Simulated scan of single mutants.
Amino acid sequence: MKISYKPLWKLMIDKEIKQKDLKNGARLSSSTIQKLRNNENVTTDVLLRICNFLDCDLSDIAECIKEN
């Protein structure tokens, strides 16, 4: 299985939040934003900061996808 942050990008569109706002509001580095864009692993601390900033749950920003 692998992780997908597609729900995060959809939620940001719905809330009209830009990536720079997420970066500043959740105190993320540019490399972390790049990892999220590429569906790479990030720490749970990062995910919790995103959830706090967006006022949402983990399931609102990430999903597990089965690999073939």
Rank of each mutant, 00 (worst) to 15 (best):
V46Y: 01
T43N: 07
I17F: 11
E63D: 10
L11M: 07
L48S: 10
M12D: 13
G25S: 03
I3A: 04
D60G: 14
N52K: 09
C56H: 03
K66C: 13
R37D: 00
N38W: 01
N38G: 08
K23W: 11
I17H: 07
R49N: 01
L8Y: 12
N41E: 02
I65G: 00
I17Q: 09
K66T: 03
C64Q: 14
K20G: 08
G25W: 06
D21G: 10
C56F: 12
I65A: 03
L8A: 12
E16W: 13
A62D: 12
D57A: 14
L47S: 10
E16A: 06
L36K: 05
D57K: 11
T32Q: 10
T43V: 07
D14Q: 12
L54K: 11
D45V: 10
N52V: 06
N38T: 01
E40W: 03
Q19I: 11
K18L: 09
V46T: 05
G25L: 00
K10W: 13
N41G: 12
V42D: 02
I65N: 07
M12I: 09
N24C: 12
K23P: 06
K2R: 14
C56A: 08
G25A: 09
T44A: 13
K2S: 15
K6G: 07
I50R: 00
A26S: 06
V46W: 01
K15M: 14
I50W: 00
T32H: 07
K10T: 06
W9Q: 00
N68L: 12
K20F: 11
M12P: 06
K2A: 02
I3V: 04
Y5K: 04
C51W: 00
I33F: 11
I50Y: 02
E16I: 12
K20E: 08
L47C: 02
D55P: 15
K35G: 03
S29K: 05
K18M: 09
T43Q: 06
W9T: 02
G25D: 10
E40Q: 09
G25I: 05
N41C: 06
I33T: 14
L54T: 02
R27A: 12
C51T: 11
V42I: 02
L48E: 14
K66F: 14
N39I: 03
K20Q: 12
S30A: 03
D45M: 11
R37A: 03
N41L: 11
E40H: 02
L11F: 00
L28M: 02
K6N: 05
I13F: 13
N39A: 05
K6H: 08
K15I: 11
R49S: 05
S59W: 14
D21L: 12
L47I: 05
N39G: 11
L11W: 10
T32F: 08
M1L: 04
I65M: 10
N38R: 04
N52L: 10
I61P: 04
K35I: 09
R27M: 02
K20R: 09
E40N: 09
I17V: 09
S29G: 12
S31N: 10
T44V: 07
R27Q: 14
S59M: 15
R49T: 00
I33P: 00
I65F: 04
S59Y: 13
D21A: 05
K18Y: 12
Y5H: 01
N68H: 15
D45P: 13
I13R: 15
M1Y: 05
D55Y: 08
V46D: 01
L47E: 02
